[in-house]
Design a protein around this nucleic acid. Structure first.
Length: 312
RNA sequence: GCCUCUGUAGCUCAGUUGGUAGAGCAGUGGACUGAAAAUCCACGUGUCGGUGGUUCGACUCCGCCCGGAGGCA
């Protein structure tokens, strides 16, 4: 019994993943599984740069626009949905193509990370945050040192979210975060992974693409979409999307529109940089630089030649 | 043409009585296991416009030249 071939197309935002994945999938009888923490939500089409209707029709897509924006998402939930989608694609004899920019989600699927049933408890979280508020984050970090020094050592006091999560995990399940990390990789991945990622030789080239894409989003009606989303109410995960919160000061009359747009572009650039940092540490990644190919077709041919080699 | 102000990090600017320079922003690198488009950490050498001079020593004082801004004719 061989492993399931899994093609991964990653890369920072605006690098051209969507188009490449579709073209590759069409040639290899593939179907696309999105690995994007925001495209998984309904609506929010413009800001998350979802594939167009035409693109969605060209190749079957999974996990695009399947959750209500007010539902929280998590790596664990995503991984569960993605594994199911891949199994389904495999059963129909097609090649699963995981495409997206959320590094943690990609890793969770590719490495088959294991997550316990339920390890969260809102009440515990709230209590921990309240404690941090009253006594300071250092108190929580000290507490974590007593139960899980290995994890406490690598966490910085400033990163309260991680400290709280580590304590929450222990208080609700008795599992230490350091144990969870080891447990998560206990089951070998069922996938034969071919991991590709897009980047550009010059960082400035990627940043130009980002700036241009934000301008296009504005032409396509980002402002109207932002107004809708910002007045829609609480959205635990979806509310973090870049594209809305940056325009909020404009709607409140606190900042000129042009400044908000500049902020939006800057936040997108920083996001792209973080994505690259994440991908760089994965040694499986085979980097693709579109600017080093004479044409897009040559890039596509090259990608397909690699895939065939991997999936045989 | 004359007078005044000005030229320091990619940008905006500090720089105290002369001892070869520092902030914010931008940017860069890194971390990352249940909110990850989030969260967090680290990183500031640049012909101090050019060139002569005074001085043990000049971003700092003086001369000239080149750029900017304003004023008077």
């Amino acid at each position: 019994m061989g492993k399931i071939p899994l093609l991964v197309i990653a890369g920072p935002t605006a690098s051209g993943k969507t188009k490449l994945a579709i073209d590759v999938a069409q040639r290899l009888h593939g179907e696309i599984v999105s690995a994007d923490s925001m495209q998984i939500y309904k609506g929010m089409d413009i800001a998350t740069a979802k594939p167009t209707q035409k693109e969605l029709a060209a190749v079957p897509h999974h996990l695009v626009g399947v959750l209500e924006p007010d539902t929280p998402c998590s790596v664990a939930l995503y991984a569960q949905l993605a594994h199911a989608a891949i199994a389904d694609i495999r059963n129909r004899g097609k090649l699963p193509v995981l495409c997206g920019g959320t590094g943690l989600y990609i890793q969770a699927v590719a490495d088959n990370l294991q997550f316990a049933e339920e390890t969260r408890d809102p009440a515990v979280r709230e209590a921990l945050y309240a404690q941090a508020d009253a006594e300071g984050a250092q108190t929580l970090l000290d507490e974590l040192f007593d139960i899980d020094p290995e994890t406490a050592q690598r966490l910085h006091v400033g990163n309260l979210g991680r400290i709280v999560r580590a304590l929450e995990l222990y208080k609700t399940t008795g599992i230490r975060m350091s144990e969870q990390l080891r447990n998560s990789t206990a089951v070998p991945s069922p996938y034969d992974v071919c991991m590709l990622a897009l980047d550009y030789t010059e960082r400035a080239a990627l940043y130009d693409r980002i700036d241009r894409r934000v301008d296009i989003m504005l032409e396509d009606g980002l402002v109207r979409e932002a107004e809708l989303v910002l007045t829609a109410g609480e959205m635990p995960t979806a509310g973090q999307a870049i594209g809305y919160k940056e325009l909020a000061p404009f709607f409140r009359g606190e900042k000129p529109f042009s400044e908000c747009v500049a902020d939006l572009k800057r936040e997108t650039r920083r996001y792209a940089k973080r994505q690259l940092t994440w991908l760089r540490r994965d040694k499986r990644v085979q980097w693709l630089y579109p600017d080093r190919f004479a044409s897009y077709e040559e890039l596509l041919d090259y990608v397909i030649s690699i895939c065939f080699k991997k999936s045989q």
